[in-house]
Design a protein around this nucleic acid. Structure first.
Lengths: 237, 237
DNA sequence: CGTCATATTGACTTTAGTCAATAGAAGTGG
DNA sequence: CCACTTCTATTGACTAAAGTCAATATGACG
């Protein structure tokens, strides 16, 4: 597999031995591309492979009966999308592409092999799971204890840093294909309120939105306005 | 270690081999008791052991600068409190006792030994981490897309089932040492609003609160009123 | 009995949601 | 390239949910 992004991400926890790196590179994978809105994983399914996002952006969400939904995670290239589906069956949420996305799938048997042969690499995988959970916890704080403007500012800070970490920020700008409805489902807000809160951030010059592109002219200023602390992302430097 | 509750919990994923069970039973542990309010783990610490809750109830939370806090998890006996601290350093949240609690600590070196010698037991541990994350995701849905009364009803359903699973429900009743302030920090609500929402549930006869005890006369009725689906808890039967 | 924490209540404010209309953009087929 | 459809963004007017503040009650406990 051409899994550069994954290896790079896992090495944020600890460097991989050449053997472990080789094991990852030679993992059997199945590649597939999805367009915006396409379902990648359906809640309730019993997976026998786990997916890694190579390019694009995907949303993990839970749909409610009344048509509402709550987005519970967002992945950028290099992220495992559902490493947890290795042990959690059936899977508790759905996954859909937020934009054209390339997904690589690894059979669970191959992961079992890693557990057996590379205990140290196992720790890297556990770290990926733990990081996913840490982000989830931070989202809970964001939704439970922050108001709309600050919440959205924090989300943009997080996305900015994660995209930057994935090498996808140029001139303080990154691609942003989420609708205001999506952002609402992500923050537990209505799209109308997202619209008004975003206007506040734009008026203050903290965020510039143009087409499917967000520019953060001064990330330090946005971080400060959002009272955002990126420690939970466990990024290097 | 007297780790009956942990073994029972891990076997909800898959039965353990006698050898694996033995490995767990002979894990070196350090036992300690905490009283309500006492700090068990401080955010930012670099742990070299992970804690298991033997008896009692503990809260995991993130403190905000202005004195507010968001509870991000609650553990019942048999739960790992911070298995993720094995790989996530420093730890991103604090832990405190909600009531008198007995905690067993396992050195991370011992966990490394399990990874090396019992790949299958490793999967049980990953399952525990994945379940923790699944609960976290459901909490996000609860906080983001449900109103106060329903939110609190859902939380009580979850707590009821988890306590029951731990063998701590008798006559539809279980010990509940959280204050309304705690419940507010758990649901992203003010304590005043929790108070009023709880009154609604009591008025409807769905929940009876007496001293530090909650009784759910009809769990089916509460489940239905809360539109609660316990699938994410992955409980047996 | 007094103290402290917790629960409860009322009055009022703020934040966010809802509904419905309009405006803008993007995409499609001819 | 244009007409047309559709999705998304924006706005205004109004409603509802939840927060805040402050007072009072209740209960646990030394």
């Amino acid at each position: 597999m051409q899994d550069g992004p994954l290896i790079r991400k896992l090495e944020q926890f600890a460097p991989l031995s050449p053997a472990a790196r080789d094991a990852l590179t030679t993992l059997p994978t199945r590649l597939r591309e999805y367009v915006r809105g396409e379902a990648i994983i359906d809640a309730g399914a019993i997976a026998n492979e786990s997916a890694i996002l190579m390019t694009g952006c995907v949303l993990r969400y839970k749909a409610l009966t009344e048509g509402a939904r709550q987005i519970v995670a967002l992945q950028v290239p290099g992220d495992f999308i559902d490493l947890h589906s290795f042990v959690l069956k059936p899977i508790d949420h759905s996954v859909a592409a937020a934009t054209t996305s390339l997904v690589a799938r690894v059979p669970h048997e191959a992961l079992e092999g890693i557990l057996r042969d590379y205990p140290h690499l196992t720790r890297n995988l556990m770290w990926d799971m733990a990081l996913d959970a840490a982000i989830c916890r931070e989202w809970m704080v964001r939704m439970g204890r922050h108001q709309a403007v600050q919440q959205i500012a924090q989300f943009i800070c997080e996305f900015y840093l994660r995209m930057k970490n994935a090498g996808l920020v140029r001139n303080n700008s990154f691609e942003f294909h989420l609708t205001q409805e999506d952002v609402g489902d992500l923050c537990g807000l209505s799209s109308v309120h997202v619209n008004r809160s975003l206007q506040t951030l734009r008026k203050d010059g903290l965020v510039v939105v143009d087409r499917k592109q967000i520019t953060v002219p001064d990330i330090a200023a946005l971080t400060s306005a959002a009272q955002f602390d990126p420690a939970y992302l466990h990024l290097l430097e």
